[in-house]
């Protein structure tokens, strides 16, 4: 019966072509450096899943943000694990995405016809940093508060536009409930939406062009 269901679906979805196109495509000789993109994708999915779980208990209000995280850490079964994975996964993701970017640069894989893949990838790297920046404020402890004070101040040092940028980031001239709320919105809706979109473009381009050869000595 499963065979019948599979055939019915395959006829309409083209599962076989999807499989060969996405997972069974021709590859250059394997190299561990070529796995960093997949590692980044895995970390993104891990962050998305643990992040969704954290929103079950986290509340982005100055009154309760800190308390709700204390509750996740001490009151919820495996809360420490979910938050721990999200916390360390974030650091690891920035690291892995950066090394992936370095690898592409060093092996010159960004060259024709893959310039767009590179540009989208740079966008992905910036979005990843944005996720780290906005997520850092959410625990609403002293470190988060002052780190965001300093970082928004840095953004505010841009000539002419600085003051405006600072106010847009903070939602006013001070770091307040508005800042926490808009950082939360950016962290769970805006940046992930952009990231997801860019990831699909990135993957489409990779599947379209195939992976680049690792350069040899004579290249």
């Amino acid at each position: 019966m499963w065979q019948k269901i599979y055939l019915w679906l395959d006829e309409r979805l083209g599962l076989k072509e999807m499989y060969t196109g996405i997972l069974d495509r021709p590859e250059p000789k394997g190299n561990w450096w070529n796995t960093l993109g997949s590692a980044s994708l895995f970390l993104f999915i891990l962050q998305a899943v643990t992040g969704i779980f954290l929103t079950v208990y986290y509340t982005p209000s100055p009154d309760h943000a800190y308390d709700s995280i204390q509750y996740i850490m001490t009151g919820v079964a495996f809360g420490w694990l979910v938050r721990g994975v999200h916390h360390w996964g974030a650091t690891l993701m920035v690291l892995v995405v950066f090394i992936h970017l370095l690898r592409v640069f060093v092996t010159a894989s960004y060259k024709y016809p893959r310039e767009l893949t590179w540009l989208v990838g740079v966008g992905l790297f910036l979005m990843t940093l944005g996720m780290g920046f906005t997520g850092y404020l959410l625990p609403w402890n002293q470190k988060a508060f002052w780190a965001t004070t300093v970082a928004t101040q840095i953004a505010g040092s841009v000539p002419y536009l600085g003051d405006f940028i600072l106010k847009v980031l903070r939602g006013g001239s001070d770091l307040s409930a508005l800042t926490l709320q808009r950082f939360f919105a950016a962290h769970i809706w805006i940046l992930p939406a952009i990231l997801t979109g860019l990831i699909f473009v990135h993957l489409f381009l990779i599947i379209k062009h195939g992976e680049s050869h690792f350069p040899q000595k004579e290249d």
Partner: peptide, 12 residues
């Protein structure tokens, strides 16, 4: 752990 995390308040 995922299920435990979600149903935790009901149990405690």
């Amino acid at each position: 752990p995922a299920i435990g995390y979600l149903i935790s308040p009901a149990l405690s």
